[in-house]
Design a protein around this nucleic acid. Structure first.
Lengths: 357, 357
DNA sequence: TGTTAGCACTCCATTCCTCTGAGTGCTAAA
DNA sequence: TTTAGCACTCAGAGGAATGGAGTGCTAACA
């Protein structure tokens, strides 16, 4: 059944007001809006209807209405109005985007911190693969007596390294030989394409460095099979700034016990192929502990089979429009930064820039 | 002025009881302890004395006593009894110590998570240098058309890498040449020893790869000057499990706004040269926002001029003895793990193992 | 038929009060 | 010097009273 225009208007108003006040919304508050021309009694009738439809909820008889999860969902899918970032906001986002570090992992972690700060909510970032990883380059560097550093470069410009303590004595020349062998025979192969025979062949050509081969291979296979990079979750405490968690520290704790890295790293998988943004509203979330929590996530392209995901975690009552706008801005500019030749290009300015606070 | 044995006993009892109950301690509670042979009236007199000395405080006239910061300090320095880890605790610490990753940074971050979990408090880890850093090895790897990966190994077995977008076209052979030049002329030099002349000389020998030199050098110098690695702070939310923060989310938030990475990374500096452990009790802390917060930190040796620091953050009322014992156990075993040939050695078991809960 | 004003009713949140009990300090006796 | 006893204090729990926001319903109106 389709809502009337007026019902939509009222639903949108309830969500908008509730999002900004965190208080149940009464009929009078809506009647007082500038573009509402009908009386509070009419609104009461419509609200009763919307409640019946399961789009609104009433904490108790003598309270106003709050959106139900279904109400939020409808709001997000159909009613939400695009938030236009104000010039001020754009400016501070731009400032934020001047990332200091240029090491990939640190950048991701910094991005998370920025997003958390700009939205005043907990945020996370993950980099994940969209295609099978292959090894691109091996490097074995003498680190000291008895130990070497194994540097492994994968597709997606991911670099991993590991300190390996040598089980046997190996000379520098032998190391050179081994890395040459590895580079010659293992590059551009996926984990599955690396066969046992191949490994034996390598071991044979490695001479006295052969005992190193399994150590190197374990690390390589493990790295190749990793579907995503580190999860950077920050700003957890900001959740406490939200009225719904202010006096419910326990609930906030629970949220973050549930929302561990495993879970976060798997979230990008639910991102739709077509849109870069995805909302998980309250009970749509995976775990029941998160039933009052929502997540907005945004994908950005890193190129070479990798994608980044930025997510913001907050109460179901979240400024979806604003957050989406900010994440979108981040995503767009990060995508460009990660792909373009010069990472220090200034971020692109938005076309128009009027706010709508 | 020196405390009498009885006063010490009472002070210790107050701290011990308050630490475990978080409630002001009355004279009766102490009189009820098994090894107390004097009456509650006597204890009242002594407590009045200790209050006068500034070692105890009284929230209000009809409440028991709680330790003052000075009281905690005296407790830590003189009265605290070593906590003997129970077999159970040792066992779970050992399990925890089976770190999965063997990449240094990830290990540090995992250690933080473990410590936080085992103490049920927020924890952090930092690695920092104890001596000047020098470059140990340079490596330039072709990553794709127009970009290379610069891998830099420093003393302390620290490996850094950065994706560099090429300003000019450079052939693989030229890259090889450049890395050879870098390795020949820059290794074992500190940041200060790298002079402008040296750089010019390198640029000249680098041929058409010369435009790369400043890019490489900026990164190298920056890395050499870095005094400490990433700070890994986790488990912030666990602070909320503590009664003093349960309904003071605001305060908890404040703590973590103050306790940022900058600050944490500078904390190891206050570690005394002689002891591996340091306590910052309440107002001894640097910032006034932390006046109700304490930090226990423990150093462990990584070797090669590096040290690691594990810290636990909690309310002033913290289980100092237990936490110190656990941190000590971690530190000892980590020190061994990071230094010994085989990182998979099982952790050393403690000599005796009876608990004292 | 749809809209609105008016009104009785509901119920949460706040305030204020009382009361209880834990704990103290002091005094006087042992 | 220690201890029993006692009057006193005060935070916190529990409960009643109050205020007010918001509702649903009815009846009048366009």
């Amino acid at each position: 059944m389709e809502l009337t225009e007026r019902q939509k208007q009222i639903l949108r108003a309830v969500v908008d007001i509730y999002i900004s006040t965190a208080e149940p919304v009464g009929s009078k508050a809506i009647a007082a809006l500038p573009d509402v021309s009908f009386s509070s009694a009419t609104i009461r009738n419509e609200m009763a209807e919307l409640t019946q439809l399961g789009l609104l909820e009433q904490p108790h008889t003598s309270a106003g209405r709050i959106p139900s999860p279904a109400g939020y969902r409808l709001y997000i899918d159909e009613l939400m109005q695009d938030y236009r970032l104000s010039l001020d906001e754009t400016r501070s986002l731009n400032e934020a985007l001047e990332l200091k570090s240029q090491e990939f992992d640190k950048m991701m972690s910094q991005v998370g911190k920025l997003v958390s700060k700009m939205t005043n909510l907990p945020a996370y970032t993950v980099a994940s693969r969209r295609s099978e990883a292959v090894a691109k380059h091996f490097d074995l560097i003498m680190a000291g007596p008895g130990s070497i550093i194994l540097v492994l470069m994968l597709s997606g410009e991911v670099v991993k390294n590991k300190l390996v303590k040598l089980p046997v004595n190996v000379s520098e020349a032998e190391l050179k030989l081994l890395s040459a062998v590895l580079n010659a025979s293992l590059t551009d192969l996926t984990a599955d394409e690396i066969s046992g025979e191949l490994l034996e062949k390598i071991s044979r050509s490695a001479g006295s460095a052969a005992p190193l081969v399994p150590l190197v291979m374990d690390f390589t296979l493990e790295s190749l099979r990793q579907q995503h990079g580190d999860v950077h979750l920050t700003g957890q405490m900001r959740l406490l700034g939200q009225p719904e968690y202010r006096d419910a520290a326990e609930k906030a704790q629970e949220v973050f016990e549930t929302l561990d890295e495993d879970m976060l790293s798997n979230l990008p998988a639910v991102l739709p192929r077509d849109g870069p943004v995805q909302f998980l509203v309250g009970p749509e979330n995976v775990a029941k502990e998160l039933k009052d929590t929502s997540v907005v996530m945004m994908r950005f392209d890193i190129g070479d089979g990798m994608q980044g995901t930025i997510g913001v975690v907050g109460p179901t009552r979240m400024e979806y429009a604003k957050i989406t706008a900010k994440l979108g801005y981040f995503a767009e500019n990060l995508g460009r930064m990660f792909q373009k030749t010069n990472p220090n290009l200034p971020p692109k300015l938005p076309d128009g820039s009027e706010n709508e606070e």
